[in-house]
Design a protein around this nucleic acid. Structure first.
Lengths: 203, 203
DNA sequence: GTGTCAGGTATTTATTTGAATACCTATCAT
DNA sequence: ATGATAGGTATTCAAATAAATACCTGACAC
């Protein structure tokens, strides 16, 4: 992107700051005063330059019609669910315990949610009781991926392996046996999502 | 907070949506059209009602002067630092590798940063090589807390114990010995911050 | 019945605002 | 020297806009 002059940078910051503080962009005259300038044309030129360089878009004929461009995608607040019932989609989430921020780079626009982990079945994968798991909603998975598996309405975090004619859900805990499902047992089974992140509190 | 009528809820949603899409609030006339209404006074009354009920603030005499209230604190994007040099404050952070979202409930307004963990010295505390550590900037700590310790300009993540006349930095790894500092060794030592969260990627 | 309130129409007015014109002053590369 | 560019002053004008006035409708409580 074309570089900004010091003055243009200053104007852009003034606009950003005004939006931060008031929730709407400044008018040309307000920018005049903020900038300590006595001409509206000076402002207009700056806006045109900033628009030409791609930092904002001016809505013609609209008061305060300044739309900032290149705004980094802001983090979403995703629900922390206590239980994951039924199918996979978002409406199946029950008992929202609260909300937690998720970096846009984590979700990449995909449908995700947080799950509070209970139990030590994945302890050897570094997942502890009480951890917060960021889960991407999806109904399939690759072998070896950690998934939120739904078995008869119960959610559990396990490693997923599809083998000949059966599915193996492998805990990461030497004290526990894998869950094997074959034949009619597969009916009550589905994948709610795949584990993306683990967030742990040390406070 | 006083409840909204259906119509008022609709107006509030229209305003929020307009701000989302354009970066600035709608004018009275634009709201008129969106709402399918032929009177500006109807809009004015709705705005007054929403203002009275505390959902927004209207800047008198200012076009599009609508400031939404009750905006939830948005997640900040904190820098991921590769090395933590010198003192403790933010300007001492070097080599910004990128940025990552932080929930406002994590930082609670405190000065924080992310640190990419290297090494397995804290493996038994569930902290692995490559994990992302959310660190709260502070220069003191309680016994047993996990801190980012600065030793002669090198950053390291250890459990902190202040004992008689010395400081012990305890790894969580049976294969490693604690770092003991006493006397003149204390000169090159400081605490950069305290561990708040660990974030791990499972992608 | 009567008052209150949410919601509405139609119209007018004063102000805010974007946009334009004409012209000026530096800096800088050619 | 000369043109291009960033930045500026002073002034004007028309459109966008907030705000006000007078009045209407229906639901609902008392």
């Amino acid at each position: 992107m074309e570089p900004l002059t010091q003055r243009q940078q200053q104007v852009l910051e003034l606009i950003t700051e005004h939006i931060e503080r008031h929730g709407f962009p400044p008018s040309h005259r307000e920018l005049m005063l903020s900038l300590g300038v006595r001409s509206q044309l000076a402002i207009l030129k700056h806006l045109r330059a900033l628009e030409r360089k791609g930092h904002l878009v001016c809505q013609p004929g609209s008061s305060r019609g300044i739309t900032l461009a290149n705004r980094p995608p802001r983090p979403a607040m995703l629900p922390i669910v206590g239980s994951v019932r039924a199918g996979s989609p978002a409406e199946a989430l029950e008992d929202t315990l609260g909300y937690c921020a998720a970096d846009p780079a984590w979700t990449r626009g995909a449908d995700c949610f947080y799950l509070r982990v209970s139990g030590d079945s994945m302890i050897e994968a570094g997942i502890q009781d009480g951890d917060l798991a960021l889960v991407r909603c999806q109904s399939t998975a690759e072998n070896g991926e950690i998934v939120v598996a739904m078995i008869d309405g119960q959610a559990t975090l396990k490693r997923y392996y599809r083998e000949e004619g059966r599915i193996r859900l492998q805990p990461a805990n030497a004290a526990l046996q894998p869950i094997i499902m074959e034949g009619h047992q597969m009916a009550g089974f589905s994948i709610a999502g795949r584990l993306l992140k683990i967030i742990r509190d040390y406070r």
